[in-house]
Every structure is written in structure tokens, then in C-alpha cells.
């Protein structure tokens, strides 16, 4: 019982913290972020397992975490509001070449990051070539170019 409750507590704490960190956090994992994630894993390991390092305890913890993740996905599918709470919603950043500055301010994003995504995914050169730019739930920025904004060859 202890292992399941520990895993539930850690799952909820991590879910809350990562939600508070914002959509963009996990989309751009730098080397330092990767090291931080390893440290987070190390810090939670003891709280997850307690003093019991048996295979059964490990199996219970892993099974609980996977079940919670699956259950969360199911609830998000069944109840859209729950899905919004746990995984947020997509957000329009650029509409017809016009940057929505208030949204960028709230999300702590810059126009450079949008252009970065536009260059990488669509080969676009200017903001006015973008029809839509969307900050997706996953934290990535997807770009829809204007019809006449084909990339130069």
C-alpha cells in the first residue's frame, strides 16, 4: 500500500510542478535541463521506494506510475476539462502575420522563437509569411505559412 501511495504523491507533485513550469519547458531540453531531470529522478527515487529496495516494491511503483499516466490520459479523453487541466490547450501566437504580443508576454515567448520555428519547419524568412503560429500542448510551435509564402529554393 505504501508504495502505491508514495508513487501517487510523487506523481501529483511532479504533475503540478511541471504544469506550473509552462508548456515550453519540455519542448526544448538543453543539456543542462537533461542533467536537472536526472537530478529530479535521483531526488524522487528515495521518496518513491522508501527503505524497501525489493523487486516487488519497484514493480508496484512503476506499475502505479504507468497506471496513473494511462488513467490521466483516459480521464482527459472522457472529460475534456480534465484534459485541459492536465495538458493545457493550444494557443495562437500569430494570426495572419500579426504577432499577438499579449499572448507572447503571458507565455514569456519572443518573436525570435516563432521565427526560429518558422525557419526550421517551413523555411520561412519573415513574420508576414506566417498565417498561423500555434503554441501546441506539447510546447512546440507549429507554423502554417500563407498560401503565397512558399519558401525560396
Amino acid at each position: 500500500m505504501d508504495a502505491v501511495l508514495r508513487a501517487l504523491a510523487i506523481y501529483l507533485i511532479l504533475l503540478l510542478l511541471f504544469r506550473l513550469m509552462g508548456k515550453r519547458t519540455m519542448s526544448q531540453v538543453t543539456t543542462f535541463d537533461f542533467v536537472l531531470l536526472l537530478i529530479v529522478g535521483e531526488a524522487t527515487q528515495q521518496a518513491l521506494l522508501g527503505e524497501d529496495f525489493s523487486i516487488v516494491q519497484a514493480a508496484l511503483v512503476v506499475a502505479t506510475l504507468i497506471a496513473l499516466s494511462r488513467f490521466s490520459d483516459f480521464l482527459g479523453w472522457k472529460f475534456p476539462t480534465f484534459g485541459r487541466v492536465t495538458e493545457s490547450v493550444p494557443l495562437v501566437l500569430v494570426q495572419d502575420g500579426k504577432v499577438l504580443d499579449d499572448v507572447l508576454t503571458k507565455e514569456h515567448l519572443t518573436a525570435d522563437e516563432i521565427m526560429d520555428a518558422a525557419r526550421e519547419t517551413q523555411g520561412l524568412e519573415r513574420m508576414d509569411q506566417i498565417k498561423w503560429a500555434v503554441l501546441e500542448q506539447s510546447g512546440t510551435i507549429s507554423v502554417v505559412p500563407r498560401e503565397n509564402a512558399a519558401p525560396k529554393s
Binding site: T81, R84, S88, V89, P90, L91, V92, W132, V134, V144
Partner: peptide, 11 residues
């Protein structure tokens, strides 16, 4: 319009 599950109130 863009078909997107945007939800400004929730956001």
C-alpha cells in the same frame, strides 16, 4: 479559420 481546440477562457 484555424481548426484548433483553443480555449481562451481556460487559458
Amino acid at each position: 479559420d484555424l481548426e484548433i481546440g483553443q480555449h481562451r477562457e481556460f487559458q
